[in-house]
């Protein structure tokens, strides 16, 4: 057992905050009622620092740091909502809308989508970048669930939950850059996957309408990704 990490004190948006040394800036901020937008982060999964929505400014550094991975340090001065950060966040969201084919009006996740929520929270009324309109498939081969690549933002939450929590490692990424594609097993239809246990965790953690439960289409059912923290606490409690 390693010794308990020391308590650090820092300043977030001018507010004095104390946190344990193994806490991220995001964790410390949320504990103190300061919200920082996130997409790839999910309590209970390893951090990847990929969506860049949670970038914050640190005093004395020109480089922006992802709050979800950066650990707190003594005396740190963090700013979470500068005009520059807000501008970048808006652009990142715009890029996501332009990257694939998001047609909210006919989407299973309409009004229940984290991407849509973020767009609204950031005052996005339109996308200035040209829509890329890629041609992407829908995999509906699984008997209970479906994957619509048109709405996938490649946050890899599904990959992580399936690997880290369910232990099945059904999902992974193929290709790179804008051509990255979420695949099940060795690029087989999801319904033919040998590893998928049909546990549905990936569907629950997916922030968008990319992964969905076929029986709930049109049912206006919010996903529930919060079960992870509970699972983890259970696990830790058992130890």
């Amino acid at each position: 057992m390693s010794p308990a990490p020391a308590v650090k004190t820092l300043l977030i948006d001018g507010k004095d905050v104390s946190a344990s040394g193994d806490q991220t800036i995001l964790g410390a901020a949320r504990e103190n009622g300061i919200s920082i937008p996130t997409l790839c982060h999910l309590d209970g999964l390893t951090e990847v620092g990929a969506c860049r929505l949670c970038l914050v400014e640190l005093k004395g550094s020109t480089r922006l740091q992802p709050a979800c991975v950066m650990l707190v340090e003594e005396g740190m001065e963090v700013t979470t909502h500068t005009p520059r950060l807000q501008k970048y966040r808006r652009m990142i969201l715009e890029l996501l809308f332009a990257e694939r084919n998001h047609v909210c009006s006919v989407c299973v996740a309409n009004n229940m989508c984290e991407l849509q929520d973020q767009a609204e929270a950031h005052g996005i009324t339109h996308v200035r970048f040209p829509y890329r309109s890629p041609s992407l498939p829908v995999d509906a081969s699984h008997e209970r669930f479906a994957l619509d690549h048109n709405r996938c933002i490649l946050c890899t939450r599904c990959v992580r939950v399936c690997n880290e929590i369910e232990g099945a490692h059904t999902w992974d990424l193929l290709g790179r850059g804008v051509n990255s594609l979420l695949i099940s097993d060795l690029h087989e239809p999801w319904g033919e996957s040998d590893t998928c246990t049909s546990c549905g965790k990936c569907v629950q953690v997916c922030p968008t309408g990319a992964l969905f439960d076929k029986s709930k289409v049109g049912g206006k059912v919010r996903k529930n990704p919060d079960f992870l923290s509970y699972l983890n606490e259970m696990r830790e409690g058992l130890r």
Partner: peptide, 21 residues
């Protein structure tokens, strides 16, 4: 850069594609 981007983070993945366009 667009074709060599690993695709992990959005600014580089989608941003290079937009700049290229």
């Amino acid at each position: 850069c667009m074709s060599e981007s690993c695709g992990k983070c959005i600014p580089c993945r989608a941003g290079t594609a937009q700049m290229f366009e």
